[in-house]
Simulated scan of single mutants.
Amino acid sequence: MVFQVHFWAPTFKWGISIANAADFAKPPEQISYPQQTAVTVTGVIWSRYSTVITPRNLNLLTVSLAMAGTGFYQLSRKIRHDYFSETEPVASKE
């Protein structure tokens, strides 16, 4: 019996990558570490999986690489803002 990998799931995952790319204009303060970590790790894991299954699913590979890339870029924006920005932290008023 031959099993086929259905193409709708990877196709709908493009929505996550497109939404993540649309958030490039979002201020870094509003980026979520857990969300972007999940997007990045999911992209990496499914990229690997898409290359070892038979038959290889190139749609899943490309969308997963896009997810990993956009997630990694968002994480790098957040890390640069939180740890390497030149702005002084706001002192709390007591």
Rank of each mutant, 00 (worst) to 15 (best):
Thr70Lys: 05
Glu94Tyr: 11
Arg80Pro: 01
Ala22Phe: 05
Arg56Ile: 03
Thr51Ala: 05
His81Phe: 15
Leu58Val: 13
Ala9Arg: 00
Phe24Trp: 11
Glu86Gly: 15
Thr11Ile: 04
Asn59Glu: 10
Ile31Met: 07
Phe24Lys: 05
Ala25Met: 00
Ala25Lys: 07
Leu61His: 01
Glu88Asn: 05
Lys26Glu: 02
Arg77Pro: 08
Val44Gly: 06
Phe84Pro: 02
Thr62His: 08
Tyr49Pro: 05
Gln30Val: 02
Ile31Val: 10
Lys93Glu: 05
Trp46Glu: 03
Ser76Arg: 13
Thr40Glu: 06
Ala68Ile: 10
Trp46Ser: 05
Leu58Trp: 15
Lys13Trp: 08
Lys78Glu: 07
Pro89Val: 03
Lys78Ser: 08
Arg77Cys: 12
Tyr33Pro: 08
Phe84Val: 02
Ile18Gly: 05
Arg48Gly: 15
Arg80Asp: 14
Tyr49Cys: 02
Thr37Pro: 02
Lys13Glu: 10
Phe24Ala: 12
Pro55Ile: 01
Arg80Ile: 03
Tyr83Asp: 06
Val41His: 07
Gln36Ser: 09
Glu86His: 15
Glu29Trp: 05
Glu88Thr: 12
Ile31His: 04
His81Asn: 08
Ser85Leu: 04
Arg48Ala: 15
Ile45Tyr: 09
Val39Asn: 08
Ser32Gln: 02
Thr40Met: 10
Ser85Thr: 06
Trp8Gly: 00
Ile53Thr: 14
Ser47Met: 06
Tyr83Lys: 14
Ser85Trp: 07
Arg56Asp: 03
Thr37Phe: 13
Phe12Tyr: 06
Phe7Ile: 08
Leu65Ile: 13
Phe72Leu: 13
Pro27Leu: 00
Glu29Asn: 05
Pro34Asn: 06
Gly43Val: 03
Met1Lys: 05
Ala22Val: 04
Val41Ala: 14
Phe7Asp: 13
Ile53Tyr: 11
Gly69Leu: 11
Val52Cys: 02
Trp46Thr: 05
Gln30Phe: 06
Val5Trp: 12
Val52Trp: 07
Glu86Lys: 15
Phe3Glu: 14
Gly43Asn: 06
Ser32His: 01
Val39Pro: 03
Asp82Thr: 14
Asn20Leu: 09
Ser17Asn: 10
Leu58Gly: 10
Thr70Val: 14
Phe7Trp: 13
